[in-house]
Design a binder for these strands. Structure first.
Lengths: 233, 233
DNA sequence: GGGAACAAAAAGTCAGACTTATATGTCACA
DNA sequence: TGTGACATATAAGTCTGACTTTTTGTTCCC
């Protein structure tokens, strides 16, 4: 998606990564580098590089005399964007979407609270601009335009929080929102209440009202949870 | 720390990873594989594998005819446990500790709320056991024993939340708590108020009182933020 | 000044030989 | 029968050298 075909080892990963994250090789399965190299018709060196990458994601473990062992799911680096993409693309998509939405529901309200204290005037302006964009595209089946501004809105919040780890979740949130628009529930125009909430969050941040920004954002994420039938606080 | 010296390429990473995350090579710096291989006295193949791992962490980008470019910090996979360890070990330690503590403050209360709904009886028992262990070691400079139970407590909460992404933060929280005990502020016995809060959280979870578990955990994390002089909600 | 052809540089790929760790089976001995 | 030492096979790990491919920057000509 982001970097397609960055070398032969990348091609191999494009097949092997999704296969492993989809559970095609159950935990404990043993693969052999030479065999994989043959299967993918690449040299051993290329295959070794691919295995190294999988190993750095804790998807597999390579040990002498035994081979490349697939690790149990609980070991995986589930925050690795690549792993997230692989899982979102496969049969684990619904579960991954739920995990991510719960994570959002924890992080975004806090991020909004911090943003209300730390956002620069430029970021405040961006935020209101995004909210207005959402309003402008909230009817008439302009789903793509709405999505664009929605993603931008949440990115600004996460960035303006001043926390690098929050900021790095921007991509994740983008994938979740895009997924919702393209694959799942949102067949018709977005919920007007949600749109209003976004506008109000932008206002709260501009007004430096951290407590209000946090509470309103929590309402947004509760909505996201409910859409997926996740028990909400 | 976890897997020392898993091959030559691992040794290289043990030096190169910390160096990059410490900012020794500013973003945009260009390295050459051959030169690095010489410097570390390893073959090109080994060096290439190391570079592949760094690339999968988005610490560097390898391009033909130009070399291995160090990426700006905003690109790094800051959730990669390895990256976190490297940064905690280097000069960026204080900043990393702050980022992680803010993340904790967002995640743990929500996790506690979920745990209150989803924890198994066994997990409830574990939780009270941990809390009691904390109480028993909260005086008399038994810092190590206290830490042990503290880490276990938070691990159980995160696991019992039923969210894999929360669960994976157990290791992170462990590092933060250990860091606090070993390097930073905690020279004397832990704050009695904090100990009490842990006991109360365990009670709330056992009583299936999600709202109370969340609120009490939020108090704990607010304390953690204040210890680092981070503006608290 | 702009575009096309060219040359150099560095990563990428491959093949093959060799080394090392280690899981497992074997055998002697208690 | 169980146990410990030892041998062996196996698969990953390492190194080397030759070759390919892409990209960048230069040069040269119109």
């Amino acid at each position: 998606m982001s970097t397609p075909g960055r070398g032969l080892h990348g091609r191999v990963l494009d097949t092997l990564g999704p296969a492993i994250t989809a559970g095609e090789y159950p935990a404990g399965s043993v693969l052999r580098t030479d065999e994989l190299a043959q299967r993918f018709e690449v040299s051993r060196s290329v295959m070794r590089e691919a295995v190294r990458v999988l190993e750095s994601m804790h998807l597999v473990e390579s040990r002498r005399r035994v081979g490349v062992t697939v690790l149990p799911e609980c070991e995986w680096n589930v925050y690795d964007p690549q792993v997230i993409r692989w899982r979102l693309a496969g049969s684990e998509r619904p579960r991954q979407l739920r995990s991510l939405t719960v994570l959002r529901s924890a992080v975004e309200p806090v991020a909004a609270g911090l943003a209300a204290r730390l956002a620069t005037p430029e970021q405040c302006a961006e935020l209101t601009e995004c909210a207005l964009g959402m309003v402008a595209n909230s009817s008439g089946h302009r789903l793509e335009e709405y999505l664009f501004h929605d993603v931008a809105f949440h990115r600004v919040i996460l960035t303006a929080s001043g926390n690098e780890m929050f900021a790095r979740l921007g991509g994740v949130v983008a994938e979740v929102l895009a997924g919702r628009t393209h694959h799942d529930v949102m067949f018709e125009d977005p919920d007007p209440a949600a749109v209003t909430l976004h506008v109000q969050v932008a206002e709260a941040v501009r007004a430096r009202d951290a407590e209000r920004a946090e509470r309103l954002t929590r309402e947004i994420t509760v909505g996201a949870l409910q859409e997926l039938d996740i028990l909400a606080p």
